[in-house]
Design a protein around this nucleic acid. Structure first.
Lengths: 333, 333
DNA sequence: CTGAAAGCGCTAACAT
DNA sequence: ATGTTAGCGCTTTCAG
């Protein structure tokens, strides 16, 4: 690496000017005459001059790079958040370095320590499941104490000193449930969850329950919680066979929605004749080309954009305000 | 940033030793006595010492960072490749910096120039559609000429001086088609493609045609090519209604497979009674929970791993050999 | 308007 | 076994 790259000093020699003149010319400083600037700039271009990023970052003490840590890139929710962040940062000349935690605190910590040491100007993170369950935020706090601005999204920790971006999980679930009841005429709705150990998972179930109660419908018997997709499938099958009055399933997360679709589709091919509506939190259901679904669009890209905005504001010190929690609007699709 | 971070010099003062003693101790050099090493290491840990990555990279002239440029992170094929790369690099202490080209040559070029300037030790790239169609590889050549090792995958350019990773598109399509014919008893297979302008798209169609011919089946009338998913849908509907003998659809890419599933499913709900088998190149169909699909598993993760291997070998100069093109095995699922 | 020089934090070659 | 020192490429005072 750094093989044939030309440096300021070489340019300065070739042009018989000082290094600082070259440096200033290339940054278009007003201190330098138009003539010299032009000469230097043209020569630099000719030689394919590219500044050594490390020297620059080292000298300036900042890298124009934001770190992103997400649990899983195969989940389209996170992929979309990434796209939102990337687009925004790109506009402002910032680079993005991404790490995947695979839902483990170990990989997460490792990533953070790699990113520490001046590698990043700021961190955007959705913590791993393990991190949230264990409530262990030391690795993040270390970065914060080091002075690196942090933005958490989706899975947040109230007590950390950083900005946060979330959606109103409770309200989203409430609204979607109400939509099933009022607009779709459903009365026997059950809810499926594979993330009932997570905070936002619980919030969504609460939203569902309260919406049901508000319409005098029974909610408690229809909560199907499982640890694995397979387990959920079993429970769902049993439930659907036992209670044929069920007319809708609400899925609390990506996998729960997909599994619900799958299971009902399978039961149908086995002769179940009833049409069961499906709704829920899902970011890849356009892939399924199923227009009948009612999807809570989490607006993932927007979450990304908001997170990126917050972090840049913090870095550029545009905001002096205390840390804020931004709630991104969601909508039904 | 870099607020309260402690430096080697500060440690050296605190401990009354020289900077180089500290440096050597922390890198566990044999030159230093066990006692001193221990003293320094413990103190450093206590102070939460983190080396300044930029100073290190700057000094050493290398960054332990690989750049990755892909067209679209929402396509699970690329997402899986990323995961493969990330896992492998992580094992060897390398970081990954990712950029999305959105299938445009402009964003791609921009990303590369940001990554130039010593920011990365090597580049792994799947070029944008535009890049391939225009056959414009200047931006990549520039990096190569600068001395940065490059690995291309999936969409490659034969003439570039770099390692490459591909799958045998022709063979994969041939085998899948043959599987439909021999094992599934299909005789009237049509093929759908949304990437017939791309090289690997054409190869796949060739594989399909040749397999059909080898079994004395008519192939040419069953090639459905389109520029958009919507257009494909129209053509497919027309075709399926016109020719009721069709018993299988082969999708050449992600979207073509999904659209084929969708369209047949829709026709079915409209009364079409025939079962049409679907096969093709797809990386997200587990999401669809449809066990009847025949999927060409592109082994995306493996492609990522191979690409990562190649780039690290090049960087560490393990390989002195000329540039190689690695073909990753695929299999039917 | 241009140049000289210091120094960012670290590594490694070279003393001692 | 430890210390001294030069210098990576760049920006940025400060002097001319």
């Amino acid at each position: 690496m750094i093989q044939s790259r030309i440096t300021l000093s070489e340019i300065s020699k070739a042009l018989n000017v000082s290094i600082s003149t070259v440096s200033k010319s290339l940054s278009n400083s007003t201190e330098i005459s138009a003539h010299t600037k032009k000469r230097v700039q043209e020569f630099a271009k000719q030689c394919n001059y590219v500044p050594n990023n490390f020297a620059v970052s080292f000298r300036k003490g900042s890298s124009n790079t934001i770190g992103l840590v997400i649990p899983n890139i195969l989940n389209p929710f996170y992929a979309k958040v990434l796209v939102g962040i990337e687009n925004y940062l790109d506009k402002y000349g910032y680079k993005l370095i991404t790490s995947i935690s695979d839902e483990t605190i170990e990989k997460e910590t490792k990533s953070l320590s790699k990113m520490a040491g001046g590698y990043i100007d700021g961190l955007i993170i959705c913590v791993s499941k393990e991190t949230e369950l264990k409530s262990n935020y030391n690795h993040i706090n270390e970065l914060i104490n080091q002075g690196t601005p942090v933005v958490m999204f989706d899975r947040i920790c109230e007590t950390l000193n950083c900005d946060k971006v979330i959606i109103d999980d409770y309200k989203a679930a409430y609204d979607a449930t109400e939509h099933l009841i009022k607009d779709k005429g459903c009365k026997h709705i059950i809810i499926t969850s594979l993330i009932d150990d997570m905070h936002h998972g619980k919030l969504r179930v609460e939203g569902f329950k309260d919406a049901m109660k508000a319409h005098n419908l029974e909610a408690n018997t229809g909560v199907l919680v499982a640890g694995t997709a397979e387990e959920l499938k079993q429970k769902l099958e049993t439930k659907l066979k036992m209670d044929t009055s069920i007319d809708a399933i609400f899925g609390v997360n990506e996998q729960a929605v997909l599994q619900s679709i799958h299971t009902t589709r399978q039961l149908k091919s086995q002769g179940l004749n009833k049409h069961i509506k499906i709704a829920g939190f899902c970011n890849q259901c356009q892939a399924d080309y199923n227009p009948m679904l009612i999807i809570v669009n989490q607006n993932a890209k927007e979450i990304g954009v908001e997170a990126a905005k917050l972090i840049l504001n913090r870095i550029k010190k545009t905001t002096k305000k205390g840390f804020q929690t931004k709630t991104v609007e969601v909508y039904l699709t």
